[in-house]
Design a protein around this nucleic acid. Sequence first.
DNA 1: AAGACCTCCAACCGCGGAACG
DNA 2: ACGTTCCGCGGTTGGAGGTCT
Length: 217
Amino acid sequence: MVQEEIMRRGPWTEEEDVQLLFYVKLFGDRRWDFLAKVSGLKRTGKSCRLRWVNYLNPDLKHGKMTPQEERLVLEFHSKWGNRWSRIARKIPGRTDNEIKNYWRTHMRKKAQEQRRKSSISPSSSSSSSITHEENERNFYDTGGIKLLQVEGEKKSSDQEQDGKSMKVYSMDEVWKDIELLEENEEKMNKPIMGSISPLWDYSLDSLWKDFDWSSFR
DNA sequence: AAGACCTCCAACCGCGGAACG
DNA sequence: ACGTTCCGCGGTTGGAGGTCT
């Protein structure tokens, strides 16, 4: 009750990210309420899980969908509809959230294009009793694959253009660090957090200092 | 130049189901 | 069997940044 009031919400800071990463490495990506508690983060377990699943997990890819991935999304969505987590499981490195967002933004665009086309064409508009709104809804709530498969192909060029303007996140160093550390771990068979990195050093310092062991039973 | 509009995506919310005592 | 807690899912929102007028 009282604790809920002091819970942090909104965007995560780098410090929080590092802290969460550390504790996930330590305890695994389960028991999120427990993790939230022991980490000292003023976040709910739910929020921690979300941050890990959608952003911090080193298995994730970041950046634009490749044309192959786009095709997979379209294919699986036509099979399963809005079962995002299920689709995500079939596309390594992508999260349900990412796919969902991708679908909503890109498919909505497609639906709008489609709408425009159909309103221009007199034959199509008069032959159906379905409204434009219904059209759009049906389009991206279920399938929509048939007309998308062709267009999905040609989209790749602007996607790649967009990719160039991808932001350099401040977390980049952390990612690189994680990659390197995991490579090292595999090679040397030694725990990740034991490795030396200025980034981890910096955060661990405050981490251990701030951590209240007495509240952890 | 600046305000309006659009796009993208991180994060939240509510709910249902599984696990556990 | 039942209540509680936790987890995961799908839907939605809000804000940052980009583009258009």
